[in-house]
Design a protein around this nucleic acid. Structure first.
Length: 441
RNA sequence: GGAGGAGUGGCAGAGUGGUCGAUUGCGGCGGUUUUGAAAACCGCAGAUGGGGCAACCCAUCCGGGGGUUCGAAUCCCUCCUCCUCCGCCA
């Protein structure tokens, strides 16, 4: 969520920065009008409350005094608050109740305005960082680096669904059990999936300093609001019925971001680096008919996620470091990849800046997004109320970052398609052999 | 699923209708003392929002939400979380 104070002080800048992502500035103008109204009414409500507090404080002693001496004069604070001199404590009670009603009504008005402001602000994406390249579409993303060389073949490399047909790659079985887009692996592919997960986790925990977490896979609405998926992307979520009303997580980012929700962390405790394996559940409502073959785009997949909570000062360096951790996975697996810096038109809803890592898949002949490493600045922290506090720096919102490290299906596709032989055999990368337990798939 | 108990400031732990943002201890910060440190003593310390050029002032916050009352940490309702016991089941 954006900072209403920032919007108040820099409305034109806010609109200009939102415009670079194709967001109309109208929401900003609306928020400003509501905010001005809110402040006026809130001020009135506060003043009424202050008068009421003073009067209530003076009331008790006066009532006591009146019992002994009915002539006891009404206290000044009470007269000030009521604007008249009450004849008796009972008369004052009636007048105070009326004043209380007026205060409550004013407060309610203020609350409703604030709800309106927050209600619309929750749908506004983050402001792009000043370093994010301005662009109009994904065509304006910038390739920051390319690593490795695409494999050369003396034959036409097959796509994974052809290469693996009849070898435990059972999309139809998944379909029978759950519907299309739910992969079912048998035998060596199931083992490969498990090997990848273990390889990812070991690398990040042993070499990159991340703390492994095991998280719930179903979460509350509030948890999804913290990390930015709700309310806007509700159509992307699997949701249980009203008895429990829980959501299946679309990524481990969701539970990990809420680990420190509501906390004020000492600066020295940051950066906090977490990684977790979870299955990810996505309805892919907007992507129907796209990437339908094989496991290019599925409703359930495995992923190891990296997530960092840090100070604003360290965030940029942590973002680079986190991206390097994800790249290291691809390098160890000898998979050619490129790092794209997404432009303003293509970065995700909550991101201020984002690198996509795309891995080359020789069979489908495409670069596949295997990781998206995002810097959220204080966008998620404001929603989740994650703050950091230092001796000299005071209390401020934390910054959060996350990225896949990596997603299994696309990593698996790249391994299989890039390492295939003419006879259909697939070589397992050296780094993965100890986990998979064999040189060939 | 059933029956109980509990949730207070960084932590521990008082407080059962009015002067309580809240006693106290520990921890933290500043100071006195000391060659230095420890100890002792003194002092300062929360978050959020609003108003003001500012000094500063006001409001809110005792798990969340709602209610009773002139007035709620304190009474009532509801939800959440944790603990104990029973039942059921991986």
């Amino acid at each position: 969520m954006l900072d209403i104070k920032y919007i108040r002080d820099n409305p034109d800048e806010a609109k200009r920065r939102l415009a670079t992502r194709g967001v109309d500035g109208g929401v900003i103008d609306e928020a400003l009008v509501l905010d001005a109204k809110w402040r006026e009414i809130k001020f009135a409500a506060d003043n009424l409350q202050a008068a009421l507090n003073k009067a209530s404080k003076a009331f008790g002693p006066w009532m006591g005094a009146s019992k002994k001496n009915p002539q006891a004069p009404a206290p000044k604070d009470l007269i000030d608050a009521l604007g008249e001199t009450p004849a008796t404590p009972d008369a004052a009670k009636v007048a105070l109740a009326a004043l209380g009603d007026k205060q409550a009504a004013t407060q309610r008005q203020a609350d409703e305005l604030m709800q309106q402001i927050e209600g619309s602000l929750l749908y506004v994406p983050n402001l792009p960082s000043s370093k994010t390249p301005v662009g109009a579409s994904e065509a304006d993303n910038i390739t920051r680096k390319e690593w490795g060389t695409k494999p050369q073949f003396t034959f036409t490399p097959k796509a994974h669904w052809d290469l693996l047909a009849g070898q435990g790659f059972d999309m139809e079985v998944g379909g029978r059990i759950s519907g299309s887009g739910f992969p079912f692996f048998r035998g060596k592919l199931a083992r490969l999936e498990r090997a990848l997960i273990n390889f990812f986790l070991d690398l990040h925990t042993r070499e990159h300093g991340y703390t492994e977490c095991w998280t719930p896979f179903m979460v509350r609405e509030e948890t999804l609001r913290n990390s930015g998926q709700l309310p806007k992307f509700i159509d992307e979520m699997y949701r249980t019925d009203a008895r429990d009303d829980l959501f299946m997580i679309p990524t481990a980012e969701v539970p990990l971001t809420s680990v420190h929700a509501g906390e004020i962390l000492p600066d020295e405790s940051t950066p906090i680096r977490y990684c977790a394996f979870t299955p990810c559940f996505r309805r892919e409502a907007g992507a129907a008919g796209k990437d339908t073959r094989g496991i290019l785009r599925v409703h359930q997949f495995s992923k190891v996620e990296l997530m960092v909570v840090t100070t604003p000062e360290q965030a940029e360096a942590e973002h680079e470091a986190l991206t390097r951790c994800a790249e290291t996975v691809l390098e160890r697996l000898e998979l050619p990849y490129r790092r794209l810096e997404l432009c303003t038109a293509d970065i995700g809803f909550g991101a201020a800046r984002c690198y996509d890592l795309e891995v080359w898949a020789a069979g489908v002949g495409k670069w596949l997004e295997a990781s998206s490493c995002s810097h959220f600045s204080d966008f998620q922290a404001r929603r989740a109320k994650i703050r950091v506090k230092g001796k000299d720096s005071g209390t401020r919102l934390a910054h959060t970052l996350n990225g896949s490290g990596l997603a299994c299906p696309r990593t698996m596709i790249a391994i299989i398609e890039n390492n295939q032989n003419a006879d259909g055999k697939v070589r397992i990368p050296d780094a993965l052999k100890p986990y998979y337990g064999n040189e060939w798939l």
